[in-house]
Write a protein that binds this DNA or RNA. Structure first.
Lengths: 195, 195
DNA sequence: AGCGTATATTTACACTGTAAATATTTTTTG
DNA sequence: CAAAAAATATTTACAGTGTAAATATACGCT
């Protein structure tokens, strides 16, 4: 059904998301418009409405795909039997590297303005992304208490840390002076672990 | 020179920034347009060009004012002789509360897409904001080493933490389940201090 | 007073997202 | 298999946006 000569595109939903990702890569967030995506997918500028409703719907789908890719990036380059510490290093490094290399997409993913915060697909993939960080933060000793929600607090702390560093880096706030050369592992060394 | 009957506005630069802040408060980031700011300030939609060049210039000025207010928010409600620990608590709490109460402005402030990252005023006020966080992080023991850049790394860690939590909160990523009720002080308890 | 400059307006234009009406294809149904 | 129904895409129209150019008005200075 991917015939090019048909009136119906056949796989327009996917093609539009892909077009959006390409535009983000090659041009930037400023050029990510509904019409530009449609043009790149070879359809009229009102065709996306059938699949995404409106601009925010398309943006949300692109952001959801972004979370999917971020999740993959956090898990690449790992031997199948990697330790949790190694997996955590990979996740943290991948998160920051993703933000650095995809600043437009990263900004879109965390822009409540442009996306629908209640989009089911977006929620799902963002949740899976967070789940990876939760997994690698298991056993982390953050505060020494054994309160029942200690694990949850460690997870939120871990995500906040990594995300904050990633966003400050990607948005250029840390590109001055000596801070420019700081890597995330310089700033966030190994944590203690529970025995 | 704030005469209303004059052809020249008299203080348009300030009026436009104020109009932008009002729009962000009362309507949201989606309605923050050049024309809307001009209308609210009572001038034609091309008047801002003389003072800010283009939309990005106006947005940068509004963002700069945002950093100014954020800095103030981090320092309010403090007795003149407050301890550094109290000042740090105030700064952290103020940062998060600011993001919660001004989500549109906060998103604008950290949006490289909409602002000019090299705007001198923006750089200055963002720097002053960061300086407050650096000040209250003084003496913080983050890693136990005494490497020469230990202080810098603690500062970057501290900003990343606070900013990450603030942005995840303001963007609704932490509004699910038990995380919803987490305050920043639950997640980031007191740090150790150097003797 | 007069001139240069700063500031503001008018007008025009290309681009954006959305809606309504229409056309085409696919799918369902009788 | 034919007809009806639904899904998908197009055309057209429109209000809104930022920007640029030409023009108008006020200010500041000598």
């Amino acid at each position: 059904m991917t015939d090019q000569s048909t009136y119906h595109h056949g796989n327009l939903k996917e093609a539009l998301v892909q077009a959006g990702l390409d535009i983000l890569n090659q041009q930037g967030l400023a050029d990510l418009t509904l019409r530009a995506c449609a043009l790149r997918a070879g359809v009229s500028h009102t065709a996306p409405k059938n699949h995404f409703g409106n601009l925010a719907g398309l943006m949300s789908a692109i952001a959801a795909r972004g979370y999917q890719r971020l999740t993959e990036t956090m898990q690449t380059g790992l031997p199948p039997d990697a330790s949790r510490a190694d997996r955590r290093q990979a996740a943290m490094g991948g998160y920051v590297e993703f933000a650095r290399q995809n600043p437009g997409l990263f900004e879109l993913m965390f822009s409540p303005q442009r996306t629908n915060g209640d989009d089911p697909d977006l929620l799902h993939h963002a949740g899976r992304c967070f789940a990876v960080l939760c997994d690698v933060s298991e056993g982390l000793i953050w505060d020494k208490s054994d309160a029942p929600d200690a694990a949850l607090r460690a997870q939120v702390m871990h995500w906040s840390m990594v995300h904050g560093f990633a966003q400050l880096t990607a948005s250029g706030k840390l590109n001055k002076g000596e801070m420019k050369h700081l890597q995330i592992f310089d700033v966030f060394p190994q944590f203690d672990y529970k025995s």
